[in-house]
Nucleic acid binder design. Structure first.
Lengths: 351, 351
DNA sequence: AAACTAATTGACAACGCTTTCAATTGTGAT
DNA sequence: ATCACAATTGAAAGCGTTGTCAATTAGTTT
């Protein structure tokens, strides 16, 4: 019942473990006859080398750890898919760390990030990628940043769509601001002048950037941004509904809405629909991220694509370079792209 | 730059590594004064024990491997969430194995499953959970089953919503057939007589069971099931559209559709919508799984809930029992539940 | 056949932790 | 003091690989 080891094989083949190791790794020539004998034994016993022992000895595990906030948010599986695909082709394997907390307490979430960070070190992963969570905070606490800075000194660490103030950790991200500009300009080009922004958190970098792109573009076009049409406080469908409901209760309403992400847009869409508004006839909606949801709603969502898959893929490539100690530029940017679908149209008066 | 080891700590504290290990694991009493000294050094050097070494020695890793077909399908993150939450609370950690193949080749997918199965053994995971893929095949190849049977003898293995013909591997699953009955009866109770079934694969157990529940209930109610209204060949939104389009081209159409999963239902919904049909007025739709999508569409999908989160959670508990060698019943069933939302209504003529 | 280079192999020390067994130290009782 | 016993500790043997260095064997060349 005990697993067979190189030692067992060696003994039965009348060779030393060194030789067995050699055929196992093709690390040095072995006479054909003895190699055959060993291979045969390996098959006979279904020998599977113990990766722990191997890693301990070689000081490399081929594992990369990924810390993300919530696997249930479709955005993360989307980038994960690209990451996985690429990393796998390079021989890496995955350690999934979901920091979601049952009660939605973000303090607990950051706490969990810390735990996982240590854990990954202990597990001796070859690299770490972080996405979402503290690295998306506009102003993370001192300890939060030093913690990951320390980590990044011990093992190649890559941030996806995030950064740490005052630090210069490797990252790959897409220009959120530009995305915000794209979306807003699209709406303006359609003829909208009364545009609102909903979703996100003022404490998070991505939200801030998206809003900045929005505001900048509005002003560039000589349009006024109305404070009461900028609502934040969440990234979920549920929150999207709430935001929309609030907007609906206002005396004056925007004709178009730029949503902090697709989920919020979906929520807004639902609320608008329930209130009898038609999208895009009565209200234009643009989302952000381009998760699968976006193209499956009715109407399909116009959105700015973060190109999740590509981001994931680049991340894997970048991290691989870091691990193999090739030099890479510290930051790599990916440009977002506007995907025009069905949820945007000229405002009503303009037909 | 080298990581500090128990040995380093021991030396500086003037004790043996055994003692260091003891304070590290609280595995035996250590005099307060020396314990304090050691703890202090650990902090000073930010000592983090090497989990590889520890696992090698203890013969346990605290890792559980999970093999799934495609993280991008929202169903899997949903059960993963429950699994993760529960497993984490028990001190386990995750090894993610996504077997998706870029080109959608299922042969390649099964191949990948084999690779991951070996890999997990090599990595010495404490347990394995499989979901989807070959364990959902109605008639998997001989080698596919012996492979996982062999694995299950080496390490606790649990199947979620799957089985292997002629074997008796631990599994936790929800009764697909009953789900099919629930959905169908609901439609019939609403007054529908012309009901179709779309989606799934005739080669897959879950599809077969769902159809069986459908057929059985139809017959029980004295209704005829029409061959031409049973379409299979996929689980995606895209396929759902195709199925619907085909149905639309038929001279006679069903007034209600039971879809193999929510994604297919969404696809059908979109096609119906594009064809000018209104759901549920002109067509009733019921999905299966109850992924987040289901409650975010317009109209919201009536569906049979697989209670993904619960399934994941039970799986974690079950596997934990297996790992700790407590006795558990080999199979645990979870009952599906009909969730009535907005996509179903009495057929038109009946108002 | 001797000398020499090339091809194969084996011994053994890491890798960093846990665990067993025995040795040492400390304590209160006598 | 002395003894019995409990509380602490240390030495060393694993755990299953890899990798280095030296030794052995085989193959050429003269």
């Amino acid at each position: 019942m005990k697993p067979v080891t190189v030692y067992d094989i060696a003994k039965e083949a009348n060779v030393s473990v060194a030789t067995v190791s050699r055929v196992l790794n093709n690390t040095a020539p072995v006479k054909k006859s003895t190699r055959d004998r060993i291979v045969e034994l390996m098959n006979k016993y279904q020998f599977q080398p113990n990766a722990l022992a191997r890693s301990l000895s070689k000081k490399e595990t081929g594992m990369i750890g990924i810390i993300l906030p919530d696997i249930t948010n479709p955005f993360f599986p989307a980038v994960l898919a690209g990451l996985e695909q690429e990393a796998r082709s390079k021989g890496y394997t995955f350690f999934l760390c979901d920091t979601v907390s049952t009660n939605g307490d973000s303090k607990e979430q950051y706490e969990r990030e810390s735990q996982y960070l240590s854990l990954l070190i202990e597990k001796q992963v070859d690299g770490i990628v972080m996405i979402g969570g503290r690295i998306n905070l506009a102003r993370p606490s001192e300890s939060m940043v030093t913690e990951v800075v320390d980590i990044s000194k011990r093992v190649p660490t890559l941030l996806i769509n995030g950064h740490l103030p005052g630090q210069n950790i490797h990252s790959i991200c897409v220009d959120e601001r530009e995305g915000g500009e794209l979306a807003t300009q699209h709406l303006i080009d359609l003829g909208h002048r009364d545009i609102g922004f909903i979703g996100g958190y003022q404490s998070m970098a991505n939200s801030i950037h998206r809003v900045q792109g929005f505001v900048k573009t509005m002003e560039k076009n000589g349009l006024k941004v109305r404070k009461e049409w900028i609502l934040d406080g969440g990234f979920s469908v549920e929150k999207g509904k709430l935001f929309m409901n609030h907007l609906l209760s206002l005396p004056e309403r925007p004709t178009a809405l730029f949503c902090a992400n697709d989920l919020v847009a979906i929520g807004a869409l639902k609320s608008a629909y329930n209130a009898g508004l038609r999208v895009p006839e009565d209200l234009s909606l643009v989302g952000f991220d381009d998760v699968p949801y976006a193209s499956n709603s009715i109407p399909e969502l116009t959105t700015v694509s973060l190109k999740c898959y590509d981001v994931g893929k680049s991340a894997a490539e970048h991290l691989h370079q870091m691990i193999t100690k090739n030099k890479v530029s510290r930051k790599t940017k990916i440009r977002p792209e506007l995907v025009i679908r069905e949820s945007t149209a000229p405002p009503k008066g303009l037909n």
